[in-house]
Structure formats: C-alpha cells, structure tokens
Amino acid sequence: MGAYAVFWREMVILKRRFLRVLGLYTVSPLLFLIAFGWGMGRSLNVEGVGYMTFMVPGLIALSSMSQSFSIAMDINIARFYWMTFEEFQSAPVSSLSIVLGEVLSGMVKGMLAAIMIFVLALCFGAELRVNGGFFLYICLNTLMFASAAVITSMVVKSHADQASFNGFFILPMSFLCGTFFPLSRLPEWAYFTAKVLPLTHASACIRAAALGRDVPLVSLGIMVFYSVLFFSGAVICVKRASI
C-alpha cells in the first residue's frame, strides 16, 4: 500500500501536467530526428541499416534513461525545497516501499518517452520491429536509471549538486554509449570506458531487439546486474536518509 501511495502521488501529478510533459518528451527527440536523421544521416548506412533505423533505438535508450532519471530532480526538490518527501519518510512505510513507488513512477515516465519516440520514428520512416524483448529492455533501462535517480537524490545535498551530477555523468553517457554511432568508432580508452557504463548495454539490447538481431546476452546480464545493484543501493540510501 505504501509503494502504491507513493506511485499514486506521482501519477496524479503526471496526469495534471500530461500535455506539458508530452511536449517535453517530444521536442528534443524530434530535434534529434530532424538534425541527425534527416539532416545528416539521410544517405548514411550504419551496421547494414539506414542511419535513422540505427539511431532510433539509441535515441529510445537515451530518452528513456533521461526521463526515468529525471525523478532525481523531482525528489531533490521534494526533499530540500518543498520538504514534501518527509511525508513519506515520517509515514509507517518501509524504505523498500518508498523506492518501489518512486522507481515505478520513473519507469512510467521513461516508457512514455520511449513510446513517443517510437511513434515519431515511424512517422520519419524508421524500420523497427516491435516485440516483447524490445519493451523488456526499455523497461530494464528505466528500472536501472530510476533506481540510480533515487540514489543520487538521497546522496546529493542540494539542487546544484544534482545538476552537477547530471552534467558529469548523464550528459556524457548520452553521447558516448552507442546511442548515435557505433562504439567501434571510439578510441580504445573511450571504448572500454563506455563498456562499463549502463547505457551502452541498454542501447545494444534495445537496438538488437528493434532490428531483429540476436540480443547480446552479456549486455543483458550487465543490465540486470546494474538494476539489482542500483535498486538495492536506493533502498539503503533511503533508509540512511532517515532512521
């Protein structure tokens, strides 16, 4: 019930802001699709498919990451500015329930963003296959980053710290993790760095599913590992943030 209450609160607010949020989820992917898909990549072929078809799964991985991670700023504001997060902390609910509710809301936001891009991409002529695996990997991606968001929102001490974290970790990941171009084009040191980052494996799995290729099982295993690690870390961090 505690997890559902936390989730319900986030969904009420999401519903209230729905049109604004939908616009937000649409604008930047639309710009990427126009600039990289139409502007630069119309005649390019990458890994045996058109650039648009190659890029869209990466864009889905990136956007679902950004939106599921965006709950970090919401929680940060609720903790340090509005103090409303204390309503959860002072209620007789476990840290697990709080994390579950917040992470589920992050996953819904991430999935919503992914669906928006998917629809837009079809309009732009991308050739993608929809299957259970495709949605499963997006789900895992949002689970990883929503859990990571809860950790950072508990660890950072101010809004400025939160913005710095986004600048140092999330933004570089957006461009270096196989989202817009294959990892093989990176220099060796960057290639191995990118291999450690979770978005690389999310991009690989989502792309493989969308293009009907064999899913890299190592990447899938790493995603599961990060999901468990981040989710457990989030529960511990929420517990430490209060008694």
């Binding site: 019930m1 505690g2 209450a5 936390v6 319900w8 609160r9 009420v12 309503e87 209620a91 007789p92």
Partner: peptide, 15 residues
C-alpha cells in the same frame, strides 16, 4: 495536490 488529495495520500501511506 489538492487538499483532498493531500489527505488521501496520507491515508494511503498509513494503510
């Protein structure tokens, strides 16, 4: 949230 929703949320958190 509205006043009602604030109270509803609290009631849900307290089961």
């Amino acid at each position: 949230l509205t006043a009602y929703e604030n109270l509803k949320l609290h009631g849900m958190l307290y089961g």
